[in-house]
Design a protein around this nucleic acid. Structure first.
Length: 504
RNA sequence: AGCGGGGUAGGGCAGCCAGGAGUGCCCGUCGGGCUCAUAACCCGAAGGUCGGAGGUUCAAAUCCUCUCCCCGCUACCA
């Protein structure tokens, strides 16, 4: 009884952490950018679990709107059937890359539909949504409105057909009412949008003021019906953004527990929607705004150009994860690309990192360590303490700091410079020439260090961490176990397959 | 045009906000060491007028001004 009460009390003080990715639009199969965002979010989520926090990690798909309905039509399918088929690819991607989400939300999920309508209604009843008229340049073929600037000589940019000036009935959200509050929020809190530069960028845009936003469509049947008028569907963003609250059980207990979100992880193309629009909606609905919107960069081709379908430079992450270990791809994405900046991708550079850092650096360190323990100490971790000089090479506080600041690439860099230090240490000490206490110290130091590394590497390369600790005869630990000399003497190590096989 | 980001050895980056000898990292190249290990690991060397010009300063990659290139964003496709 007392124990139960105590663990309950403990659970109550547990820190909460809620992270989301943007939900993906299934108008095509996932590309590397989708994979990247998920891997980054997953890494952060796993880090917070490692810290012992209670984590909710949400990802999913944004399934409504004119584009999906056009794609469905093009493939001769009903929209629902089309998205049901497409979503499989996104789930598969998550499975392949070990994305540890707590919920995969689809905007066609019934609870989401219900909440979207409730929020729409709530804002409407407050008088912040009104019926008006939307006019713009419209292309019949695309079934899309364009802004004046989008048009090429008055023609649709994709079809080259003459665009028509069309007016239609639409509900509008009085976003203009929120210009000041949104701007205040952005200016007041330095961490509200990261990296810093993105915050400046959005502040400058919001300073120009917000216009009322058309939040319904009379000509897009594939969407959530506007609650007070079945002739309209909700504008996709008025639907999609709400996934962040519906996905975590708004307005129930879990929502109370986890909201406001700690991090919305998004790409730089949708910053406007996640600040100006999203904040305004939340303010209108009297819900707190998220703590941080983190904007990651884009992945470009080897030469730094944008990936494009027409150029044939789009990379299929599922194909990659079949060719390379998932951890190799995760490692590359997290290590190569400074988090928050754009980065380049090529299989060559990925292979180089896989071979040099994962196989030769980390994998070989484990292999030589386990081999020596088997060879010189009958497979048992000797009784010793980890070398003091070596211990200094692992900057745990620095790693924590980097993770806190979301400098994932730096955190990973520090872990790997420790791996290097371990290899260095081995060469300097030459344990194969030693015996007795001196050798014991080296062997213990290496095994203990690898145990530490396996803990710290979990968020980045979880399968590999598992393999390392298994070869060391251990279960994976939490960050609380991440201090030196916690490895028990006598632990039986067990050599297994090499961690990473090199690729040509 | 406005706003943001970037221009640092052959390639890729960090360092810049809180100035202090070009300091560091990865790849590549060359030389050496070791033999526990995945032809692995370790050490060393070559290589840069820090885009350009001017300014502040005892001192500038770092701060200020100007200038030249590259890239992104500028809302209702998502």
């Amino acid at each position: 009884m007392a124990k139960k009460a105590a663990s309950k009390a403990l659970a109550d003080v547990k820190k909460k952490f809620y992270i989301t990715t943007a939900i993906d639009y299934p108008s095509g199969k996932p590309h590397l950018g989708h994979a990247y965002e998920k891997v980054c979010a997953d890494c952060i989520a796993r880090w917070h679990r490692l810290l012992g926090e209670e984590v909710f990690f949400l990802t999913g798909t944004d399934e409504h709107g004119s584009k999906v309905s056009r794609c469905a039509k093009a493939s001769g399918k009903a929209p629902q059937k089309y998205v049901d088929e497409m979503v499989v690819y996104f789930r598969e991607l998550c499975a392949k890359l070990n994305i540890s989400y707590d919920r995969f939300i689809r905007t066609t999920d019934s609870d989401h539909v219900k909440i979207s309508q409730e929020i729409f209604k709530k804002i409407y009843e407050k008088g912040e949504i009104y019926l008006g008229e939307y006019s713009g340049w419209y292309c019949d073929e695309c079934e899309t409105f364009f802004t004046e600037k989008d048009l090429v000589d008055g023609n649709c940019p994709t079809h080259g057909k003459k665009a028509k000036w069309v007016s239609e009935e639409s509900y509008f959200f009085k976003m203009s009412n929120y210009s000041k509050r949104v701007l205040d929020a952005l200016e007041k809190n330095e961490k509200i949008v990261l990296p810093e530069g993105k915050r400046k960028e959005i502040i400058n845009r919001v300073k120009e003021g917000l216009n009322d936003l058309s939040v319904s469509r009379a000509n897009v049947p594939w969407g959530i019906p506007v609650p007070m008028n079945a002739n309209h569907t909700q504008y996709v963003w008025m639907d999609a953004l709400l996934n962040y609250i519906s996905g975590v059980g708004y307005p129930g207990k879990d929502f109370e527990k986890f909201w406001p979100a700690n991090i919305h992880l998004i790409g730089k193309d949708i910053l406007w929607h996640h600040t100006a629009i999203w904040y305004s909606i939340l303010m209108a609905a009297e819900i707190e705004i998220p703590k941080t919107v983190f904007v990651h960069g884009f992945i470009n081709t080897e030469s730094g150009e944008k990936m494009s379908k027409s150029g044939g430079t789009v990379i299929d992450p599922v194909a990659l994860s079949e060719k390379y270990p998932a951890d190799a791809l995760r490692y590359f994405l997290l290590r190569e690309i400074p988090f928050g900046q754009d980065g380049n991708f090529s299989e060559d550079s990925m292979r180089i990192r896989l071979n040099n850092e994962l196989a030769n650096g980390l994998g070989n360190l484990l292999n030589r360590t386990v081999t020596m323990i088997e060879k010189y100490n009958a497979g048992e971790v000797p009784n010793a303490k980890t070398n003091i000089e070596l211990r200094k090479k692992l900057d745990i506080d620095g790693i924590k700091k980097h993770m806190e600041n979301l400098e994932l690439h730096h955190a990973l860099g520090k872990i790997f410079s420790f791996v290097h230090a371990c290899n260095q240490f081995t060469n300097e000490k030459e344990p194969w020439k030693l015996d007795g206490k001196e050798r014991d110290e080296v062997l213990y130091s290496l095994a203990d260090s690898l145990r530490m590394a396996s803990i710290l590497l979990q968020p980045f390369i979880p399968e590999t961490s598992e393999k390392i600790s298994s070869q060391l005869g251990l279960k994976l630990g939490l960050l609380a176990d991440c201090s030196f000399n916690k490895l028990k003497a006598g632990t039986k190590v067990k050599k297994a397959e090499v961690l990473f096989r090199k690729l040509e």
